[in-house]
Amino acid sequence: MLIFILIMMLFFLLGAIGDERGVASMFTILGNMVVFFISLGMIFKTGHIFTVTFFAVIGFLLLTLFAQNGFNEKTISAFYGIVIILILVGVSSVVLVNLSSLAGFGELYIYDEEVAFMENQIGYSAQSLLVCSIMIGILGAITDTALSVSSAMYEVREHNPSISKHELEQAGFHVGWDILGTTFSTLIFAEIGQGFFLWLIFARNKYSVVGLLNSKSFLQQTFLIIASSLGCLLIIPLTAKITAKIMKKK
Protein backbone atom coordinates (compact mmCIF):
# COMPACT_ATOMS: atom_id res chain seq x y z
CA MET A 1 0.00 0.00 0.00
CA LEU A 2 2.69 2.46 1.09
CA ILE A 3 4.89 1.59 -1.90
CA PHE A 4 1.94 1.96 -4.27
CA ILE A 5 1.11 5.44 -2.88
CA LEU A 6 4.76 6.49 -3.11
CA ILE A 7 5.03 5.28 -6.74
CA MET A 8 1.86 7.19 -7.68
CA MET A 9 3.12 10.29 -5.92
CA LEU A 10 6.48 10.07 -7.69
CA PHE A 11 4.75 9.58 -11.04
CA PHE A 12 2.60 12.64 -10.43
CA LEU A 13 5.52 14.81 -9.30
CA LEU A 14 7.75 13.84 -12.22
CA GLY A 15 4.94 14.52 -14.66
CA ALA A 16 4.00 17.83 -13.07
CA ILE A 17 7.52 19.14 -12.64
CA GLY A 18 9.30 17.79 -15.68
CA ASP A 19 6.63 17.53 -18.43
CA GLU A 20 6.87 14.60 -20.83
CA ARG A 21 10.59 14.07 -20.13
CA GLY A 22 9.73 13.71 -16.47
CA VAL A 23 7.27 10.95 -17.30
CA ALA A 24 9.94 9.38 -19.55
CA SER A 25 12.25 9.38 -16.50
CA MET A 26 9.61 7.48 -14.56
CA PHE A 27 9.44 4.81 -17.26
CA THR A 28 13.24 4.57 -17.25
CA ILE A 29 13.17 4.01 -13.49
CA LEU A 30 10.45 1.38 -13.78
CA GLY A 31 12.40 -0.22 -16.65
CA ASN A 32 15.54 -0.31 -14.50
CA MET A 33 13.56 -1.98 -11.71
CA VAL A 34 12.29 -4.62 -14.14
CA VAL A 35 15.82 -5.24 -15.50
CA PHE A 36 17.11 -5.52 -11.93
CA PHE A 37 14.55 -8.11 -10.85
CA ILE A 38 14.97 -10.11 -14.08
CA SER A 39 18.76 -10.07 -13.58
CA LEU A 40 18.38 -11.24 -10.00
CA GLY A 41 16.15 -14.10 -11.20
CA MET A 42 18.58 -14.98 -14.02
CA ILE A 43 21.60 -15.04 -11.67
CA PHE A 44 19.68 -17.33 -9.35
CA LYS A 45 18.47 -19.59 -12.14
CA THR A 46 21.61 -19.86 -14.29
CA GLY A 47 24.41 -19.18 -11.80
CA HIS A 48 26.28 -17.28 -14.55
CA ILE A 49 26.91 -14.22 -12.39
CA PHE A 50 29.24 -12.26 -14.67
CA THR A 51 27.38 -13.04 -17.92
CA VAL A 52 24.07 -11.89 -16.42
CA THR A 53 25.77 -8.80 -14.94
CA PHE A 54 27.19 -7.95 -18.38
CA PHE A 55 23.75 -8.10 -20.03
CA ALA A 56 22.13 -6.29 -17.08
CA VAL A 57 24.64 -3.44 -17.42
CA ILE A 58 23.91 -3.21 -21.16
CA GLY A 59 20.18 -3.13 -20.38
CA PHE A 60 20.61 -0.44 -17.70
CA LEU A 61 22.77 1.69 -20.01
CA LEU A 62 20.34 1.35 -22.92
CA LEU A 63 17.54 2.59 -20.67
CA THR A 64 19.36 5.20 -18.59
CA LEU A 65 21.60 6.61 -21.27
CA PHE A 66 19.98 6.16 -24.66
CA ALA A 67 16.23 5.76 -23.99
CA GLN A 68 16.25 8.65 -21.51
CA ASN A 69 18.67 11.00 -23.28
CA GLY A 70 18.65 9.93 -26.91
CA PHE A 71 21.37 8.51 -29.16
CA ASN A 72 23.72 11.43 -29.77
CA GLU A 73 27.31 12.66 -29.31
CA LYS A 74 26.71 13.32 -25.59
CA THR A 75 25.43 9.86 -24.78
CA ILE A 76 27.92 8.05 -27.03
CA SER A 77 30.85 9.84 -25.34
CA ALA A 78 29.40 9.07 -21.91
CA PHE A 79 28.86 5.43 -22.95
CA TYR A 80 32.54 4.93 -23.88
CA GLY A 81 33.66 6.53 -20.61
CA ILE A 82 31.27 4.38 -18.55
CA VAL A 83 32.36 1.14 -20.24
CA ILE A 84 36.07 1.88 -19.64
CA ILE A 85 35.46 2.77 -15.98
CA LEU A 86 33.30 -0.31 -15.44
CA ILE A 87 36.07 -2.53 -16.81
CA LEU A 88 38.65 -0.75 -14.64
CA VAL A 89 36.56 -0.89 -11.44
CA GLY A 90 35.47 -4.45 -12.21
CA VAL A 91 39.04 -5.73 -12.65
CA SER A 92 40.30 -3.81 -9.58
CA SER A 93 37.40 -5.14 -7.50
CA VAL A 94 38.08 -8.75 -8.53
CA VAL A 95 41.73 -8.33 -7.48
CA LEU A 96 40.98 -6.51 -4.19
CA VAL A 97 38.05 -8.72 -3.17
CA ASN A 98 40.07 -11.89 -3.86
CA LEU A 99 43.31 -10.68 -2.30
CA SER A 100 41.65 -9.56 0.91
CA SER A 101 39.02 -12.37 1.13
CA LEU A 102 36.40 -9.65 1.44
CA ALA A 103 33.28 -11.52 0.34
CA GLY A 104 30.92 -13.53 2.49
CA PHE A 105 29.51 -12.67 5.88
CA GLY A 106 31.19 -9.94 7.86
CA GLU A 107 31.68 -10.43 11.60
CA LEU A 108 28.36 -8.70 12.36
CA TYR A 109 26.18 -11.12 10.40
CA ILE A 110 25.19 -12.78 13.68
CA TYR A 111 23.23 -9.62 14.48
CA ASP A 112 20.99 -10.25 11.48
CA GLU A 113 18.79 -13.00 12.90
CA GLU A 114 17.15 -13.75 9.58
CA VAL A 115 20.41 -14.30 7.67
CA ALA A 116 22.41 -15.88 10.51
CA PHE A 117 20.45 -19.13 10.41
CA MET A 118 20.22 -19.50 6.65
CA GLU A 119 21.84 -22.30 4.67
CA ASN A 120 24.96 -20.66 3.28
CA GLN A 121 26.48 -23.39 1.08
CA ILE A 122 24.34 -22.35 -1.85
CA GLY A 123 26.56 -22.94 -4.87
CA TYR A 124 26.97 -19.24 -5.78
CA SER A 125 30.31 -17.54 -5.21
CA ALA A 126 29.99 -14.73 -2.67
CA GLN A 127 33.07 -13.08 -4.22
CA SER A 128 31.54 -12.94 -7.71
CA LEU A 129 28.25 -11.68 -6.24
CA LEU A 130 30.09 -8.91 -4.41
CA VAL A 131 31.92 -7.81 -7.58
CA CYS A 132 28.62 -7.92 -9.50
CA SER A 133 26.95 -5.76 -6.82
CA ILE A 134 29.82 -3.25 -7.01
CA MET A 135 29.58 -3.01 -10.81
CA ILE A 136 25.82 -2.46 -10.77
CA GLY A 137 25.99 -0.21 -7.71
CA ILE A 138 28.42 2.29 -9.24
CA LEU A 139 26.48 2.54 -12.49
CA GLY A 140 24.14 5.36 -11.43
CA ALA A 141 26.85 7.64 -10.06
CA ILE A 142 29.27 7.26 -12.97
CA THR A 143 26.46 7.66 -15.53
CA ASP A 144 25.32 10.86 -13.83
CA THR A 145 28.85 12.29 -13.75
CA ALA A 146 29.69 11.27 -17.33
CA LEU A 147 26.46 12.74 -18.68
CA SER A 148 26.92 16.00 -16.76
CA VAL A 149 30.39 16.41 -18.26
CA SER A 150 29.48 15.47 -21.84
CA SER A 151 26.20 17.50 -21.80
CA ALA A 152 27.96 20.62 -20.55
CA MET A 153 30.67 20.22 -23.22
CA TYR A 154 27.98 19.84 -25.86
CA GLU A 155 26.35 23.11 -24.73
CA VAL A 156 29.72 24.89 -24.75
CA ARG A 157 30.43 23.63 -28.30
CA GLU A 158 26.93 24.71 -29.45
CA HIS A 159 27.46 28.24 -28.15
CA ASN A 160 31.02 28.44 -29.42
CA PRO A 161 31.54 26.14 -32.42
CA SER A 162 35.08 27.45 -33.07
CA ILE A 163 36.30 26.41 -29.62
CA SER A 164 39.54 24.39 -29.71
CA LYS A 165 39.71 20.76 -28.64
CA HIS A 166 41.88 21.66 -25.64
CA GLU A 167 39.51 24.44 -24.48
CA LEU A 168 36.55 22.12 -24.84
CA GLU A 169 38.32 19.50 -22.77
CA GLN A 170 39.06 22.12 -20.09
CA ALA A 171 35.37 23.11 -20.02
CA GLY A 172 34.55 19.45 -19.28
CA PHE A 173 37.10 19.40 -16.46
CA HIS A 174 35.59 22.57 -14.93
CA VAL A 175 32.10 21.09 -14.86
CA GLY A 176 33.59 17.97 -13.27
CA TRP A 177 35.19 20.02 -10.48
CA ASP A 178 31.89 21.81 -9.85
CA ILE A 179 29.82 18.67 -9.42
CA LEU A 180 32.36 16.59 -7.47
CA GLY A 181 31.49 17.95 -4.01
CA THR A 182 27.75 17.35 -4.26
CA THR A 183 28.22 13.98 -6.01
CA PHE A 184 30.28 12.82 -3.01
CA SER A 185 27.64 14.18 -0.64
CA THR A 186 24.91 12.28 -2.48
CA LEU A 187 26.89 9.04 -2.22
CA ILE A 188 27.97 9.50 1.40
CA PHE A 189 24.48 10.31 2.68
CA ALA A 190 22.92 7.50 0.64
CA GLU A 191 25.36 5.15 2.38
CA ILE A 192 24.83 6.70 5.83
CA GLY A 193 21.08 6.10 5.45
CA GLN A 194 21.30 2.66 3.88
CA GLY A 195 23.74 1.20 6.38
CA PHE A 196 22.12 2.98 9.32
CA PHE A 197 21.26 -0.12 11.37
CA LEU A 198 24.75 -1.48 10.86
CA TRP A 199 26.28 1.85 12.00
CA LEU A 200 24.17 1.55 15.15
CA ILE A 201 25.74 -1.85 15.89
CA PHE A 202 29.24 -0.43 15.36
CA ALA A 203 28.36 2.43 17.74
CA ARG A 204 26.82 0.09 20.31
CA ASN A 205 29.88 -2.18 20.25
CA LYS A 206 32.17 0.87 20.56
CA TYR A 207 34.48 -0.03 17.67
CA SER A 208 37.79 1.85 17.66
CA VAL A 209 39.10 3.45 14.44
CA VAL A 210 41.61 0.61 14.01
CA GLY A 211 38.82 -1.88 14.71
CA LEU A 212 36.72 -0.29 11.97
CA LEU A 213 39.63 -0.30 9.51
CA ASN A 214 40.00 -4.08 9.98
CA SER A 215 36.30 -4.89 10.11
CA LYS A 216 35.00 -6.99 7.23
CA SER A 217 31.44 -5.76 7.79
CA PHE A 218 32.54 -2.11 7.72
CA LEU A 219 34.62 -2.51 4.57
CA GLN A 220 31.89 -4.44 2.78
CA GLN A 221 29.34 -1.76 3.60
CA THR A 222 31.53 1.14 2.44
CA PHE A 223 33.35 -0.50 -0.49
CA LEU A 224 30.62 0.37 -2.99
CA ILE A 225 30.59 4.06 -2.10
CA ILE A 226 34.36 4.36 -2.31
CA ALA A 227 34.38 2.47 -5.62
CA SER A 228 31.62 4.82 -6.88
CA SER A 229 33.58 7.89 -5.76
CA LEU A 230 36.74 6.64 -7.46
CA GLY A 231 34.72 5.85 -10.57
CA CYS A 232 33.27 9.39 -10.60
CA LEU A 233 36.73 10.91 -10.19
CA LEU A 234 38.23 8.88 -13.01
CA ILE A 235 35.33 9.35 -15.38
CA ILE A 236 35.60 13.16 -15.40
CA PRO A 237 38.92 13.47 -17.31
CA LEU A 238 38.12 10.36 -19.33
CA THR A 239 34.74 11.63 -20.55
CA ALA A 240 36.18 15.11 -21.14
CA LYS A 241 38.88 13.63 -23.41
CA ILE A 242 36.52 11.26 -25.24
CA THR A 243 33.84 13.94 -25.72
CA ALA A 244 36.38 16.49 -27.01
CA LYS A 245 37.73 13.90 -29.44
CA ILE A 246 34.26 12.96 -30.72
CA MET A 247 32.92 16.51 -30.89
CA LYS A 248 35.97 17.99 -32.61
CA LYS A 249 36.26 15.17 -35.13
CA LYS A 250 34.16 16.93 -37.76
Partner: peptide, 8 residues
Protein backbone atom coordinates in the same frame (compact mmCIF):
# COMPACT_ATOMS: atom_id res chain seq x y z
CA UNK B 1 16.06 14.51 -12.16
CA UNK B 2 16.24 11.23 -14.08
CA UNK B 3 19.96 10.62 -13.65
CA UNK B 4 19.94 11.76 -10.01
CA UNK B 5 17.14 9.33 -9.21
CA UNK B 6 19.13 6.59 -10.95
CA UNK B 7 22.14 7.31 -8.70
CA UNK B 8 19.99 6.46 -5.67
Amino acid sequence: MGTMINVL
